[in-house]
Structures are given as C-alpha cells and as structure tokens.
Computed example of a mutant assay.
Amino acid sequence: MTFNDLSSPLSALATRRSGKPRDLVAPGPDADQLARIVAIAARTPDHGKLAPWRFVTVGADRRDAFAALLARAYIAQKPDAGRLETEANDQFARQAPALVVQMSSPQPDSHIPLWEQELSAGAAGMNLLHAAHAMGFAGGWLTTWAAYSDVVRDAFGAAPERIAGFFFIGTPGRALDERPRPDMARVRTDWTPPR
C-alpha cells in the first residue's frame, strides 16, 4: 500500500518521512521485500569498498529473545529500574512488523579514515529508509540506550562494531506527521573564497 507520491525518484525522496515505530503495523515487508530493502541499502557510497556496515534482521519469531536481551541488559545497567521502564523496553522490542539492526563495522586497519567509514554506515541507514519508503512502507530509525549498551552490542557483534540503529519497518497505522524542516537559508550558503 502506497501512502505517498512515489511516481518519480524525486517525489519519493521528497515525500519520505519517518514513521514512529510504535505506530507501524502489518503488513510489513515479507522476506523477499526485506532482502531487497537491505540490498538497496548496501548500494551506498563506500570509499575503499570496505562495506563498513552490516544488517541483522530480527524475525518475528526472535522478538521474545530480543525483549529478554533488552531486559537483561537494562537491569544490569540499572538494577533499580521500575516497572514502567521495563515495560517500555519490552514494547520497544516488539514494535513494528520488521526490525533490522544496523551495525557500524569499521575496519580500523584500513587506510580509509574511520570517519569516512562511519559516514558510509550512516548513508547505508538512510538508503534503507529510502528503500522501505519506495516499496510503500514507512521506517523509523531509533537508537535509545540499547544502541550504546555493550551487552546488547555483543549479542549482534563485537567491538569495534557499534549499533548504528534499530530500523523498524511497517505500514503506517495513521497518517505520518510532517516535521519541521531546516531553514534552507541557514543550512545552505554559497562559498566565498577567503581573502
């Protein structure tokens, strides 16, 4: 189901909006669609052809295990956590029909600067959201405390990898909000050579 004008690449780019993961409902992408979304995400600028990122899908049958992982990691980090905090983590693990965890996987021994590898990971995440949108879905890119937890990271990889984000994908359960966009006069200027 298409919720925006996707009749041209430019209108698809101009209409992409993030969906709040808690508002994303079925249908989500099926296995073939999700594989295609990830393959498109991998077509990103990548100096040195390192692919300094990777994608881990968390299937519906693995959401209970993911929720348990978040619970263990959060309690280890904050032993006095209250009921509302633990419920919020459980809801986080179970929102939206599809979940892709993107890892930033830098290669420290490469001559390619780490910063460029990290920029490539960010670009891959954005491509993932654009691909989901182009296929008629919405996506939300979240981090939260879990992206910075070594316990959670270690369940998906190992240092020097880091979690770039949790990408939730599904169909908007309500109209997507348009957020304020930057003032173009503030974020775009013409260069003037120094004197």
Rank of each mutant, 00 (worst) to 15 (best):
N4K: 12
D5F: 10
S8A: 09
P9G: 07
L10I: 10
S18E: 09
D23H: 13
L24C: 02
D30K: 00
A31M: 04
A31P: 01
Q33S: 11
L34D: 09
L34G: 07
V38R: 09
R43Y: 11
P45I: 09
G48W: 11
P52W: 06
W53T: 06
R54N: 01
T57P: 01
A60H: 14
D61T: 14
D61R: 10
R63P: 02
A67T: 06
A71P: 03
A71H: 15
R72H: 15
K78W: 10
D80F: 09
A81F: 14
A81V: 04
G82V: 10
R83Y: 13
R83S: 14
T86Y: 08
T86M: 15
D90P: 00
Q95G: 00
S104P: 00
D109Y: 06
L114I: 07
L114W: 10
G122P: 03
H133S: 14
G139F: 08
G140I: 04
L142K: 07
A146I: 03
A147W: 08
A147F: 04
Y148V: 03
A164W: 12
F166W: 07
A175K: 13
E178P: 01
R179F: 10
A185G: 04
V187H: 02
R188S: 13
T192K: 10
R195V: 01
